[in-house]
C-alpha cells in the first residue's frame, strides 16, 4: 500500500494532512496515534470509503475504487453493525456472496472461519441481535477473513474482547499473516500492536511523524547484560565498562552496556569471560511502544487547522 500526499478536510477540520506512507507487502503494519489523529479517516481513504481531497493511494498495486482490488481486501470497521436479524453464519454467507464466492463454498468457509475466531458453534445460527460485543467483534473478524484476503485491514479488532479472547484473535491474525496476507492494524492497545506488528507508523494531527520497522523504532543505544553473582563480579563488570543496575539483587548482577555497536559489546564480553565472569543473559534494550508514541508526538510540530 502506497500513500502519497493524502489529504482530507471535513469543513474547517483537517483530518489528514499530507500522509506519505509505504506498507510493504506481507508486513504486519500497525498504525498508532492519539484520538483524532486521523487514523480511521486514513483507513477509509485507503479503502475508498472516504474520498480524498488530494494525493494518491495505491493498494495491492491498484486503485482501491476498483472492485477487483477490493475483492482481495478484508476489512473490519471500528464499529461494525451486523444486521441484528442475521445469524453469524448468514452474515458471513452474505459477505461471501458479495465477494463472489459460490454458495456451497461460502457456507463451509463461513463455518471454518467462525470456528477459527472462537465463536461457539451454538451461536452460529442465533440472531446476532443478542450477541455480546466480543461475539460481534469475532463475527466481524471472521467476515474480514472471508475469501482469504491479501490485505487485512483491522480497525480495533480486539475492542471488547477479554484477555484470553484477545490472544485467540491475535493468533488468528498472525496465522493470516503467516499465510501471506499483509496486515494493517489500527489499535489503541499498544501491547497488541507490539505483539502483532513488525512495522509501525505514528500518526499525529493527520501526519505520519514516525514510521519504520518496529525493531528499529524500539531500539535503544544500550544492552542489558546479566552475570552470575560471585564475590568479585561487580568489580569485574565495572572494569570492563558495564554499568551496574542498583537495587537488583538475586543470583545475578544486572548491568547495562551503553552503545548500539554489537562488536564493541562482544569485545567487552570476551574480556569479561576471560576474567572468569559467567554470562547469564544478554538482550538489546528496547523502548516501549508507548514511549515511541509519546516521544514522537511530543516532538512533532503542532499544526493548527486552517
Amino acid at each position: 500500500m502506497v500513500a502519497k500526499g493524502l489529504k482530507k478536510r471535513f469543513g474547517g477540520v483537517v483530518a489528514v494532512d499530507g500522509i506519505d506512507l509505504l506498507v510493504p507487502r506481507g508486513a504486519r503494519f500497525g498504525l498508532i496515534g492519539q484520538n483524532g489523529a486521523g487514523k480511521t479517516t486514513f483507513i477509509k481513504m485507503m479503502l475508498a470509503i472516504c474520498k480524498r481531497d488530494a494525493g494518491d493511494v495505491s493498494v495491492l498495486g491498484g486503485d482501491p475504487d476498483d472492485v477487483k482490488v477490493r475483492q482481495r481486501i478484508g476489512y473490519l470497521p471500528e464499529r461494525l453493525t451486523i444486521p441484528p436479524s442475521f445469524s453469524a453464519l448468514a452474515f458471513l454467507e452474505s459477505v461471501a456472496r458479495l465477494k463472489g464466492i459460490a454458495a456451497g463454498r461460502a457456507t463451509s468457509e463461513a463455518r471454518d472461519l467462525l470456528a477459527r475466531v472462537g465463536l461457539e458453534e451454538v451461536a452460529w445460527k442465533r440472531s446476532t441481535g443478542g450477541y455480546s460485543k466480543g461475539m460481534r467483534q469475532r463475527t466481524g473478524l471472521a467476515a474480514a477473513l472471508v475469501g482469504t484476503p491479501d490485505l487485512l485491514v483491522l480497525d480495533e479488532p480486539t475492542d471488547g474482547i477479554d484477555p484470553l479472547g484477545r490472544r485467540q484473535i491475535r493468533d488468528v491474525i498472525l496465522d493470516a499473516a503467516k499465510a501471506g496476507a499483509t496486515v494493517f492494524l489500527n489499535s489503541h492497545l499498544l501491547a497488541e500492536t507490539e505483539r502483532i506488528c513488525d512495522h509501525v507508523a505514528v500518526l499525529h494531527r493527520g501526519r505520519v511523524v514516525v514510521a519504520g520497522a518496529l525493531s528499529m523504532l524500539q531500539k535503544k543505544d544500550a544492552f542489558h547484560v546479566s552475570f552470575q553473582k560471585t564475590a568479585n563480579a561487580v568489580d569485574l563488570a565495572k572494569k570492563h565498562g558495564f554499568q551496574i543496575k542498583e537495587g537488583e539483587g538475586g543470583d545475578v548482577v544486572s548491568c547495562s552496556f551503553t552503545g548500539s555497536d554489537a562488536s564493541v559489546l562482544s569485545r567487552a564480553l570476551h574480556l569479561a569471560l576471560g576474567d572468569g565472569l559467567v554470562i547469564v543473559e544478554v538482550t538489546a534494550a528496547l523502548v516501549e511502544l508507548e514511549t515511541v508514541l509519546e516521544q514522537s508526538t511530543k516532538q512533532a510540530p503542532i499544526r493548527e487547522a486552517a
Binding site: Q71, L76, R79, L80, I82, P83, L98, V153
Partner: peptide, 18 residues
C-alpha cells in the same frame, strides 16, 4: 437508512460492491 448507517455501509463499501 439502515443499510447506510455508520458501521454497516463502510463494511459494504469495502467489499467488491460498486
Amino acid at each position: 437508512p439502515r443499510l447506510l448507517q455508520p458501521g454497516r455501509v463502510e463494511a459494504l463499501l469495502a467489499l467488491p460492491v460498486r
